[in-house]
Write a protein that binds this DNA or RNA. Structure first.
Length: 713
DNA sequence: GAAATCATACTTTTT
DNA sequence: GTATGATTTC
């Protein structure tokens, strides 16, 4: 599909004539690049798509290109760099800075789509009628607000005499409803199409959802709230306002987009809009590593790009990361993909260690095997921080974490949003948001229910009573709450005025508002309630201490909240900074969070069907292909060694007796052709005399086969 | 009528 | 460990 290779290759030769003298005059920024990388970095013929296989030096090349642009006179502040995570943006700019030796690189605009949207909207929002002091709702808050609206709609329908909903509630759960809406927005596809294609079992709820979505949108607008999708949507809308579009279109000379294969339809339109008339686009990506389909990303973006904007294509196929035996494996996995672009990575790196498939008796044996191999590599000179354990879902590492703790092996876990999801953390953040924006209805709804004797119904009454649903001056809200309290039990009334006092004292509209003091004031109200509510108060308050410390380091409460929403701590340790500089620790990460990173040694655990691919993602062929790419991404993170672990037996905790167990099947992606490139280790086998049950995710047919095999014994 | 309590099921991946 | 739903309690 990228058939413009010929063009690119031709130009590539032009750009780097063999044996020409300028080799000696190559600027520092480009000196250590391979010819193909250098061609991409120096490209000056218009829009460019760099198809960069895993480990081919994508970051190096992009950083070199930035450096080259700056060296050749482009004003850094006219560079826009859109990346997938803030971490990636920071690293890219840092490396470009190193390459040029010029600090001015820092003036480039860099960040995630969402972070840049936030920045632009604070400035240009008013052109849309958007209050520049909007609050950013994270995923969770957004789902809460949507749920709130749906509750109200349901209640209203009931009182209007509509038939009560069927007893067994088949309404989509809040999270599901939120993801449906998100897909509609990000894929720019009508609700009915999204429902029939991705959520057919919810198709009958179209009317309810449509009303809910409309109400939710209206509510957000009224209260100056933007969720993640709104950030993109409003950015897109800015580009429809002629004057702003013209200004933004002239604002940058170069737009560089990383991980283009994981952009969605909305983001693609935004990129095109930002190009305006004169800016040049550089997109980097690898269709073989597209793993964000669940977030409405579409590989079509990268495939269609060359034709759409007339971009030339440069491919990077030399891996500077992995050894040949590892590439043999990863190429084999990629080759099994249903739809595939001919691409075969090669490497000049030395190293002959074969990847291993370690078959373990059960999960416990797997944890032990991982620890042993980790320590083995450690003893041979690979520090823990050069090793990583990759998992499909956060909880896959639960048992391993236990084992690591027992053995005193330090680790940091990335991925999963657990910290910000904990109830007490959300409580404190809700309080902070209220100090910032007293009209944040979701935050009110949450905090009010902390008061003894106040439940959903009373909370809603108070909100209406205090006029939160009107847009009066915000500072009067707490006043109304205190001076004109709604009828309540007296104890609740006291606690309520305590809350109003705390919010007033902590309010950012105070002349001198220091985040540390603001948070401390809020906690003086909140801490006792948390202590009373939860048994493990100490641990929870310790979490809040971490949050408080992080807030204290922020320039303002507003910045603290926005940063937290746009760039949530990847691990609990993140808030407090990395443990100690001289410490060494193992990384545990979801495969998604491992994107773009590399380690000398990579351990991929739970390579059983049902886990990789996840049972939750085998609904259709596209999803399964995405799971295959996920395995590909995991395996291509390794430089020297890959160990894949397969526990034979799983305990079923859910159903029946505690000791029930079943045998799993090896991941369907590890086909015989793939296993050709793997060394087998671990001696675990299925005992012949045991009854064989269905393993995690084994298909019905496979189960039949396995039971048959047992009968044949 | 609403809140508190209890029982049960369900848990992907992330900006 | 959390979120939802049914049940009991206020």
């Amino acid at each position: 599909m990228f058939d413009s290779t010929a063009t690119a290759t031709g130009t590539l030769e032009l750009a780097t004539p063999e044996g020409e003298v300028w080799q000696d005059e190559v600027p520092v920024a480009l000196r250590r690049l391979t010819p193909e990388q250098r061609a991409a970095a120096r490209w000056s013929e218009g829009h460019l798509l760099i198809v960069a296989g895993a480990g081919t030096g994508k970051t190096t090349t992009l950083a070199a290109r930035i450096a080259h642009l700056v060296d050749t006179g482009v004003d850094p502040s006219r560079l826009l760099l859109l990346t997938f995570s803030r971490r990636a943006a920071a690293e890219l700019l840092q490396r470009a800075e190193q390459a040029t030796g010029r600090a001015v690189v820092r003036q480039a605009w860099g960040g995630t789509f969402h972070a840049v949207a936030n920045r632009l909207l604070r400035r240009h929002g008013p052109a849309l009628g958007l209050d520049a002091s909007f609050t950013v709702l994270d995923q969770r808050d957004a789902a809460d607000l949507l749920a709130l609206v749906r509750e109200e709609n349901a209640a209203a329908a009931l009182s209007a005499g509509a038939p009560p909903p069927p007893k067994r509630s088949r309404r989509a759960k809040p999270d599901l409803a939120a993801s449906i809406l998100s897909r509609v927005v990000n894929s720019r596809t009508p609700l009915s199409a999204v429902l029939s294609k991705h959520y057919p079992w919810c198709a009958d709820q179209r009317d309810e959802l449509r009303v809910a979505f409309a109400g939710y949108t209206a509510r957000k607008r009224a209260h100056h709230l933007l969720d993640f999708d709104d950030l993109l949507l409003c950015w897109h809308a800015l580009l429809q306002v002629p004057e702003v579009a013209t200004e933004l279109g002239r604002r940058f000379d170069h737009v560089l987009v990383d991980e283009y294969q994981d952009t969605n339809a909305l983001q693609a339109e935004i990129v095109l809009g930002m190009l305006g008339q004169g800016a040049t686009l550089t997109a980097v990506g690898d269709d073989a590593q597209a793993i964000y389909g669940f977030r409405a990303a579409t590989v079509r973006n990268i495939i269609d790009l060359p034709d759409l904007v007339g971009a030339d294509v440069v491919r990077l196929e030399q891996s500077h990361r992995s050894t040949p035996p590892l590439l043999a494996l990863t190429n084999a996995v990629a080759a099994e993909a249903a739809e595939r672009h001919e691409k075969s990575l090669w490497s000049e790196r030395p190293g002959a260690a074969m990847p291993t498939l370690v078959t373990c008796a059960d999960e416990g044996a797997q944890s032990a095997a991982v620890c042993e191999r980790v320590l083995d590599h450690f003893d041979r000179g690979t520090p823990l921080r050069a090793q990583a354990v990759l998992v499909r879902t956060g909880h896959h590492s639960d048992l391993l974490e236990l084992e690591l703790t027992v053995r005193n092996i330090p680790y940091v876990k990335y991925g999963g949003l657990t910290f910000l999801e904990a109830a007490h953390v959300k409580d404190l953040l809700a309080a902070c948001r209220l100090a910032e924006n007293p009209r944040d209805e979701v935050a009110w709804f949450r905090l009010l229910q902390l008061v003894e004797g106040v439940g959903p119904a009373t909370a809603r009454r108070i909100i209406v009573h205090a006029g939160l649903d009107t847009s009066g001056p915000p500072e009067h809200v707490t006043m109304r709450l205190r001076d004109d309290p709604p009828p309540l039990p007296s104890a609740a009334g006291e606690s309520l005025s305590g809350l109003a006092d705390a919010l007033d004292d902590a309010s950012s509209s105070r002349i001198v508002a220091v985040p540390a003091d603001q948070v401390a004031r809020l906690r003086s109200w909140l801490d006792p309630l948390i202590a009373a509510r939860h048994g493990d108060a100490d641990a929870r308050l310790a979490d809040l201490d971490q949050l408080t410390a992080a807030a204290a380091a922020a320039p303002s409460l507003e910045r603290f909240l926005v940063d937290l929403a746009l760039d949530p701590p990847a691990s609990t340790g993140d808030l407090a900074g990395p443990p100690h500089l001289d410490d060494d620790w193992l990384t545990i990460s979801t495969i998604h969070s491992a994107k773009g990173l590399e380690w000398d040694v990579v351990h991929v655990i739970h390579a059983a069907d049902g886990n990789i691919p996840s049972d939750m993602a085998t609904g259709n062929a596209d999803e399964i292909e995405e799971e295959r790419r996920l395995l590909y991404v995991a395996l291509t993170r390794a430089r020297d060694h890959v160990h894949v672990y397969f526990p034979l037996r799983y305990h079923h905790r859910k159903r029946g007796r505690d000791d029930a167990h079943g045998y799993a099947q090896l991941s369907r992606f590890l086909t015989p052709a793939v296993l050709d490139h793997v060394e087998h280790a671990g001696a675990a086998t299925v005992p012949a005399d045991e009854t064989v049950a269905i393993g995690a995710g084994a298909s019905a047919l496979a189960a039949v086969d396995v039971s048959l095999a047992a009968l044949f014994d």
